[in-house]
Write a protein that binds this DNA or RNA. Structure first.
Length: 668
DNA sequence: GGGGCACCACATT
DNA sequence: TTCCAAATGTGGTGCCCC
């Protein structure tokens, strides 16, 4: 396989900056003639040693691992593995459609151009729209210095000391964007915009009706845009959208490039085209294809088709081969509904809980406002966190019903956040998905698994999920809506209630430790408890991606005084099993089960555990962590489930309580 | 084994 | 001196459930 792996050296040595790949070291319109090496060195020097830089290196290392993995896979391939590609290519080739003419238009340095238009004194100056932390757009004057979009402002300043900064003004950009769109409408009423400054137009009809060429439409459209907005744009015309987009970049700024609707023209065009120019191929994919298969141009995709088919999924392979053939979308895509709505904020890193919750409150408010503006509600809330070390985490919970109010969002979001603390954070975000319009009639999703559980466990059970929610919701919000926020939680919550007919029962399974309502009434310092008890990191660290995964921890919720139950999912292969043992032992004792001796040791070891103290304060447990006699008697009198001895198949080994519960339950 | 879901990485502007 | 965004979509993966 060595022939396929044209593994390039990745720099290093006495020129470390050469291997520091950033988004801005790639070619971008207006950056020809820039001393790339100098720019790269400046960026490297300014980034070196920062948290951001360290995180980038971490990410690079993960990419490298993936590359190694793919190389190893590649080396194992036999002749049979790599013989199934020609049919695929023929199929794709058969789908080629040269009957449509697509035009892609892209405003030149849009934000910067609008600012200059509004304030002509900026003309000719190197301009950056953005802030010291991030540049959204750089004018062409600034690009000559290597300054570009997505670059932090302070690096821009270093590259170009005279760089002028302007704060973005989206209302302005929207206004100009609308002017441009009115022009697009004339050429294709079904045009679709991909951002404020870019759009695709199917100009097939216009060309036929008016008997003009794509080139003529392009010139005319650019003229009209300039006339209507005072701004310039660049245009690409090609038989499909993928190529049209590449074409619009060729003669930027204020230019156009037309690729005729001929197969040869297309294949010639893509033959030397770097894969990075293709939309959808970013930094990581580019590196992977290059370092595993030596692919740098689109045509090489076809040369390495056999390997691509053998190494990647069908979807990915189809995409890669289409790139090689110069195929792309030719039909106007159906209007797609919004899938999610989100907002996020970066701030200076903080580990101050109150500040973090304050930020969360603001985010919830923003998101609720945005949702309500569009009359949308959603079911899945995703919390995004970026730690001070730039590590990004997302945590999601799905509510039983559709929500959009700030209060509902916040209850859910708080639970997700609490489960992650303590953390030093530099960014938080909230995203709502599983959307539906308010006018729609959102069917409450059925819990098939839950139904099944009920059928299996207790036909007489008449559990009311929502009414089962805690009544001590301090927020006063309608906790019923999101009492159980995930399917698992609904299942477990109902299972708990079902098994015991007693909300004081604890339930756990291999990966879930759930603590229902009773905990919610404990007046403890929730922040400290929830963070001391079983954080994701405590239980094995962050889940790694894909095949490299060596530790598994998933989590959903933990102790939360606002909910009627809480939960924590932890992997059985916890790196700190003691804590899980302890918790399970604790659950055992609360349920009135006899504990295997190993739990006693665990408890001794963790006698200083904060929660134990709190429980003692509550007089639920005695000094050894067992239920007090009074509480035990009370529990036994109200719990119909017979007390069982928890057997240990192997001395000192942890037995998941859930297997016990589940077995027990199924027998009923 | 397939569908649904959650999580995450990647991509684009 | 210090400083690296926001919004959104897609696809892969792994898990659970049927």
């Amino acid at each position: 396989m060595s022939s396929a792996a044209g593994a390039p050296s990745d720099g290093g040595g006495d020129r470390p900056w050469q291997s520091y790949h950033t988004a801005y070291t790639n070619g971008k319109a207006g950056m020809e003639g820039v001393d790339k090496e100098k720019v790269q060195k400046v960026i490297y020097e300014m980034s070196k040693g920062s948290k951001y830089f360290e995180n980038e290196q971490k990410k690079e290392a993960i990419t490298k691992q993936k590359i190694e993995h793919l190389r190893a896979q590649c080396a194992k391939l036999n002749d049979n593995d790599i013989s199934h590609f020609q049919k695929k290519i023929l199929e794709l080739e058969a789908s080629r459609d040269l009957s449509k003419i697509w035009l892609h238009t892209d405003m030149d340095a849009f934000y910067a151009a609008v600012e200059i238009l509004e304030n002509p004194s900026l003309k000719g100056k190197p301009l950056a729209v953005g802030s010291m932390s991030m540049i959204a757009t750089a004018s062409y004057e600034a690009r000559k210095f290597g300054v570009r979009a997505a670059m932090p402002g302070f690096i821009g300043c270093k590259l170009c000391p005279d760089l002028v900064f302007v704060r973005p003004n989206f209302e302005r950009y929207t206004h100009y964007s609308e002017l441009a769109r009115k022009v697009f409408q004339r050429y294709d009423p079904n045009f679709f915009a991909t951002s404020l400054d870019e759009a695709y137009l199917n100009i097939t009809e216009v060309c036929i009706e008016r008997g003009i060429t794509g080139e003529e439409v392009a010139s005319e459209l650019r003229g009209a845009i300039h006339q209507e907005t005072g701004l310039t744009c660049s245009v690409g015309v090609a038989p499909n959208r993928m190529i049209a987009k590449v074409c619009s970049d060729i003669n930027k700024p204020n230019g156009q490039f037309i690729l005729p609707n001929e197969r040869d023209a297309v294949t010639t065009f893509v033959s030397t085209l770097p894969i990075r120019k293709i939309g959808g191929i970013g930094k990581v994919t580019e590196q992977m294809l290059h370092q595993v298969l030596g692919i740098t141009t689109c045509q090489q995709m076809l040369q390495k088709a056999a390997f691509l088919c053998a190494l990647f999924s069908e979807g990915s392979t189809d995409f890669f081969l289409s790139v090689g053939l110069g195929l792309g979308g030719t039909e106007t895509p159906e209007h797609r509904l919004r899938k999610s709505m989100s907002c996020e904020r970066t701030f200076s890193a903080t580990n101050d809980y109150s500040l973090q919750f304050e930020k969360l409150d603001n985010l919830a408010e923003n998101l609720a406002d945005d949702l309500q503006k569009e009359c949308l509600k959603g079911r899945t809330l995703t919390l995004k966190l970026k730690t001070a070390a730039f590590e990004v985490r997302t945590r999601a919970a799905t509510a039983q019903s559709y929500i959009s109010s700030k209060e509902d969002i916040l209850i859910c979001a708080k639970k997700l956040l609490k489960a992650e603390l303590p953390l030093s954070l530099r960014l938080m975000g909230l995203r709502m998905s599983h959307l539906c319009g308010e006018k729609d009639d959102p069917t409450i999703p059925t819990q098939k698994t839950l139904d099944r559980f009920f059928r299996l466990s207790d036909n007489n059970s008449n559990v009311n999920r929502t009414n089962g929610a805690s009544s001590n919701d301090a927020s006063g919000g309608d906790d019923c809506n999101i009492g159980a926020t995930t399917k698992d939680e609904c299942l477990i919550h109902d299972a708990v209630t079902d098994i015991s007919s007693d909300q004081h029962t604890f339930f756990s399974n291999d990966e879930n430790i759930f603590v229902p309502e009773e905990r919610s009434s404990v007046n403890y310092d929730n922040e400290v408890v929830s963070s001391n008890l079983l954080t994701c990191d405590d239980l094995g660290g962050t889940k790694l991606d894909g095949n490299t995964s060596n530790s598994k921890v998933t989590q959903s919720e933990k102790f939360d005084d606002l909910s009627h139950f809480t939960s924590c999912k932890a992997s059985a292969s916890s790196s700190k099993p003691n804590q899980q043992f302890w918790v399970d032992g604790y659950i055992c004792s609360l349920c009135g089960f006899e504990l295997p001796p190993c739990f006693e040791e665990e408890r001794q070891e963790h006698s200083d555990f904060h929660l134990a103290e709190l429980l003692q304060q509550e007089e639920a447990l005695d000094s050894s962590g067992h239920l007090t006699k009074e509480r035990l008697a009370e529990r036994q009198s109200t719990t119909p489930t017979p007390k069982k001895k928890l057997k240990s198949s192997k001395e000192g080994k942890h037995i998941p309580i859930d297997s016990f519960f589940l077995k027990h339950n199924k027998k009923l």
